[in-house]
């Protein structure tokens, strides 16, 4: 499967995948993203819901079966980790190039 088709990731998707390296439910992801981004990125609830739905469809994350059926808990898949690493490589490359110009 060509995972490059998912690149570049949106800021929302990038942070969600990063947050889901540890499992968590919907609202926990929202809080974690705010924490990870040092308060710079706040994903609104409706946007978060749609993003989780898309990531599930793309199988970059999966829902862990739990005893609490009311709140689903999510975790990144192997494909999700690969996509995240590809994106990190892409971003690092961009930054390395930019640094040469000392903007």
């Amino acid at each position: 499967m060509n995972l490059n088709k998912y690149l570049p990731l949106t800021e929302t998707t990038y942070y969600i995948l990063l947050a889901l390296l540890e499992e968590g439910h919907g609202y926990a992801i929202m809080q974690k993203v705010e924490l990870l981004s040092e308060g710079k990125v706040r994903i609104a609830a409706g946007t978060m819901y749609g993003a989780i739905e898309n990531l599930l469809k793309q199988e970059l994350i999966y829902a862990i079966p739990t005893s609490d059926t009311r709140r689903k808990v999510y975790h990144i898949t192997a494909e999700g980790k690969t996509v995240l690493n590809l994106e990190i490589e892409r971003l690092s490359h961009l930054i390395a190039i930019s640094n040469k110009y000392k903007i």
């Binding site: 439910h25 919907g26 609202y27 929202m30 609830a45 409706g46 978060m48 819901y49 059926t69 009311r70 709140r71 689903k72």
Partner: peptide, 16 residues
């Protein structure tokens, strides 16, 4: 309906 309930609960967690 279960998906809807989960959606409403998630939004409630987030303050809606």
């Amino acid at each position: 309906k279960a998906d809807f309930q989960e959606y409403v609960l998630f939004l409630a967690d987030a303050g809606w």
